[in-house]
Design a binder for these strands. Structure first.
Ligand SMILES: [Zn+2]
Ligand SMILES: [Zn+2]
Ligand SMILES: [Zn+2]
Ligand SMILES: [Zn+2]
Length: 507
DNA sequence: TAGAACGTCAAC
DNA sequence: GTTGACGTTCTA
């Protein structure tokens, strides 16, 4: 079977060389860019029974992902991945199963991401008004294996003021959705897997009638969701509504790996700096130390309660104290404040970003179906992060050698962070924006710490270790078909120039 | 349209 | 007040 797939691939002459990017391969659902699997939820049976075709993007991306992971072998395996080999094999089987998929049939307008809501955990927290409310934390992992560094909390049903537990279920089918975004057009393979990973907090299946309407909507408005130009050429109606004033400034996190670097003294921005003999006209930060996790400034203000973010670190904040900026409408809210102000928006749910801290897609914009702005409309610092993750070949950006003492230092910081997080767990079990606080011990880990990568892998399986893969040998060298890996060598294509990106995306 | 320039803001 | 640099406009 692997051979068959490889042969078909040869017919298409590979991903990188000639496979055209067909706009019809783009799926309308643009917030679902993460790799997820169907589960056992009874509510989803009707969906499960339908065969889900994958797009060319999804297949190409998946194949490239498999290819890259194969090459990495035992390196850089996310710690929350229980059975990486089985996962990889499952992905490769998936490729084979879907090799004959029809891209046209993959456009259904229906979400194929589903969750299990069986398990719920309730916590009592105190909100800004010192009133105690019941929240329910969403967890991605099996509680037994869960630690807070890997879990996330997600807002659901704003009107209900609830957080709900989520647990990925073991897949019963190998249906995977990996929706492309416009950033795909800008980047190489796998861009769709890490461009801007949002994970939905709660996604109840709409009633059939609503589903049909939704589907019809996508069909009727397909062009709206299908870029026919490059992202920088697109113009959206919402452009006029969002002015510069709505664009709240972001500042560097001072914690991510690039932030920890020194100025390189060689890039154009460094050369312009007075300290390197320049005249200081450009006033931009060094190209090699551009932050990949820009945060809201301390002056950011909740639109409802008007409280400022203040100088406290994100890790010190209770969940209800964290400000979130919507990537579409640019509004900034505390979650409870959003509930209060928009209790009418109950048909949709917030979706949180794994890429940019303190960022989400607010229920209002989801309900309003606000189109995703083109990349060039994003704030440069945010755009940079999204593009950089793509530009970095699936996040695996090649980083300069750092001496062991430095690594020890960072490791120390990491340990401190973990202790702090454990302390925090005792009070806020679902407060986990930790994933956005990037700390690292080596160059690979820094990228892995970006939750999008980890979740991409981890979401394939549950953490209970009960992975159903009978008959699948685990020895990669003997069972893994190298034909699947033969298409490219991403690490080979990495070089220093990848670290430099044009101003359009760099600044 | 990409890169240069600069007003202005955030951090210190 | 000073420094760094974000977001936008300007320009070739
Ligand atoms: Zn530099
Ligand atoms: Zn940073
Ligand atoms: Zn507020
Ligand atoms: Zn919004």
């Amino acid at each position: 079977m692997n051979l068959e797939y490889a042969q078909k691939q040869q017919e298409t002459d590979g991903i990188k060389s000639t496979t055209p990017i067909n706009s019809s391969d783009l799926k309308p659902c643009r917030t679902s860019r993460l790799l997820l699997v169907n589960n056992n939820n009874n509510n989803n049976k009707d969906i499960e029974q339908q065969y889900q075709h994958l797009t060319r993007f999804e297949l190409d991306g998946l194949q490239t992902l498999c290819s890259l992971l194969r090459k990495l072998k035992d390196k850089s395996i996310p710690e929350d991945l229980i059975q990486p080999q089985q996962l990889l094999e499952s992905m490769e089987r998936l490729l084979i199963d879907h090799v004959s998929d029809d891209s046209q049939l993959s456009i259904t307008g229906q979400s194929i991401i589903h969750y299990n809501y069986n398990q719920q955990y309730t916590f009592d927290i105190t909100n800004n008004q010192n009133e105690t409310e019941s929240f329910q934390g969403i967890k991605r992992k099996n509680p037994d294996h869960n630690n807070m560094q890997q879990s996330s909390f997600h807002l659901i049903h704003p009107s209900q003021h609830q957080y709900e537990t989520l647990s990925m279920q073991q897949p019963t089918t190998n249906v995977v959705t990996l929706h492309p975004s416009t950033t795909v057009l800008l980047s190489g393979p796998l861009a769709s897997s890490n461009s801007s990973n949002y994970y939905p907090s709660h996604h109840p299946l709409p009633p059939p009638q609503q589903q049909q309407q939704q589907q019809q909507h996508y069909i009727n408005n397909y062009n709206q969701y299908t870029p026919t130009k490059s992202p920088t050429q697109q113009h959206y109606q919402t452009d006029k509504n969002i002015t510069a004033k709505d664009r709240h400034k972001r500042v560097r996190c001072k914690q991510c790996e690039p932030c920890c670097r020194d100025d390189c003294s060689e890039c154009v921005h460094c050369k312009d700096m007075p300290k390197f003999g320049g005249v200081g006209k450009m006033k931009q930060c060094c190209l090699t130390k551009q932050c990949i996790a820009p945060i809201l400034p301390s002056t950011a203000t909740c639109q409802v309660c008007l409280k400022k973010k203040g100088s406290r670190k994100l890790s010190q904040l209770k969940p209800e104290e964290i400000l979130y900026e919507c990537e579409r409408c640019m509004e900034i809210h505390h979650l409870p404040c959003f509930h209060t102000a928009h209790s009418d928006v109950s048909t949709s749910e917030g979706v949180f970003s794994d890429d940019i801290p303190e960022t989400w897609l607010c229920p209002k914009c989801i309900t309003a179906n606000t189109p995703e702005p083109p990349l060039y409309k994003l704030r440069p610092i945010v755009r940079r992060t999204l593009v950089t993750t793509n530009k970095g070949k699936n996040g695996l950006i090649e980083l300069p050698y750092s001496d062991p003492s430095q690594q020890q230092h960072h490791h120390h910081i990491l340990q401190q962070q973990q202790q702090q997080q454990q302390h925090q767990q005792q009070y806020h079990m679902y407060a986990t924006n930790i994933n956005t606080n990037l700390h690292y011990t080596d160059s690979y880990e820094v990228m892995e710490n970006e939750a999008k990568k980890r979740r991409l892998y981890a979401s394939m399986y549950t953490t209970n270790g009960n992975i159903d893969s009978p008959g699948i040998p685990t020895n990669p060298s003997s069972t893994m078909n190298n034909n699947l890996v033969a298409l490219d060598d991403l690490s080979q294509s990495l070089n220093d120039s990848d670290l430099y990106i044009p101003q359009m995306f760099a600044v």
